[in-house]
Each structure stands twice: as structure tokens, then as C-alpha cells.
Simulated assay, not measured.
Amino acid sequence: MDSTLPRVTADTALYAEVLDWIHFEAELLDDLRERDWLESMVSRDVTYTVPLRQTVERARGRGFAPDTYHLLETYGSLSSRVTRNETQYAWAEDPPSRIRHFVTNVRVHRTDGPDVLAVRSNLLLHRTRQDQSVPQLLSAERHDQLRREDGRLMLLRRDVLLDLTVIRTHNLAIFF
């Protein structure tokens, strides 16, 4: 996100609307209401990525591969994942993970695009599976674009920048 874009401050109704959107999204995903999330909060034009992170020297930047992804999704592929989770064949998530999304440090900026906001936030995803006694923790920075469609905010783009270079989890059948 370009920090030179006009900032939306926390004392505005627009910031409150974005924050409410983020909290409701976390609630839907934590409650495994993935279909409701997809149909009510995700744009049909969405791009959803989790790029591969590498350990590199400081001069080479933050270490995200420009063309290699753990996840590179569209509305169609997200919809397929949600549909699969609704069947009896979602073995990777049966029984489903228990997940909590902790979203903090929300920063909102206006963009040059009509009705598009750039939202940057930090995410801590707490996940347990089956009878695990040690949770899996995934931390990341999210770079989102929200676009107003038919009067409501919709997720147009999400880039999840994981802090980990090695993901020690059984699968990535979860939504960030």
C-alpha cells in the first residue's frame, strides 16, 4: 500500500465502517460460515494471494517472490474451495479446524480508484485441529482493497504476507 495516499482517520464514519467490515469478516470465518463470507463480502473480481516468502538479505527487499504463491485465487477458485468444504469429501478439514482471526493495526487509505479503499492490517491466526494441545499460529500482514459495490464494501484484493518462510501446518485449507 502506498503510504502517500490520503489516510482515512479513526475518527471518521468510513474508518468505523471498514473496521466493522473487518470484525464481521473475522466472525464469519471463525464461525465457519464461509459461504456467507464469500457471497456477502467478496467481489466477483477478487484476487486473493499468499506469496511465497524467502529469507533474503536486506538489500533485496522483504523477500516475497513476485511470481510464486502458496495461494493464487479468484472468485471461482475460492467458490470451489467453499463448495468442497460443504461436502463430505473435505478430508483436509474434517473435522474442521478451530480458528480465531485476530486483526489489529488497521490502516485505511483512499485510492485513485473510484470507491476503492486500501486497507492494511496485521493478522494473527490461531488454529487447532482435532485433539492438538499446541496451537498453530500464523502471523501476517494483510494488504486489502475494498470496493463499494451496490452500497456495501466488498473484498476486491487480498495479499497475505506471511511472516513465516516455512509453514508448519498440515494444509492451507483455511481463509486468511
Rank of each mutant, 00 (worst) to 15 (best):
P6I: 11
R7P: 00
T9Q: 11
A10T: 10
D11N: 01
T12R: 15
T12D: 08
T12A: 11
L14N: 10
Y15G: 00
Y15H: 15
A16H: 14
E17F: 04
E17H: 09
L19I: 12
W21Y: 13
I22K: 02
I22D: 01
I22Q: 04
I22Y: 00
H23F: 12
E25S: 06
A26M: 14
E27D: 15
L28Y: 01
L29Y: 02
L29F: 08
D30P: 08
D30M: 13
D30H: 10
L32W: 07
L32N: 05
R33I: 05
E34M: 07
W37R: 10
L38Y: 05
L38H: 04
L38F: 01
M41E: 02
M41D: 02
M41S: 08
D45G: 00
V46M: 06
V46F: 01
T47H: 07
T47E: 07
T47D: 00
T49F: 09
V50A: 07
P51A: 03
L52I: 15
L52T: 09
R53F: 03
Q54F: 11
Q54T: 03
Q54M: 15
Q54K: 11
T55D: 13
T55Q: 12
V56F: 09
V56S: 14
E57D: 15
R58N: 12
A59V: 14
R60A: 15
G61H: 00
G61P: 04
R62P: 01
G63P: 05
D67H: 11
D67C: 08
D67P: 11
T68K: 14
T68C: 12
Y69W: 15
Y69F: 15
H70P: 03
H70S: 00
H70R: 07
L71D: 00
L71S: 04
L72S: 04
E73P: 06
E73K: 05
E73Q: 09
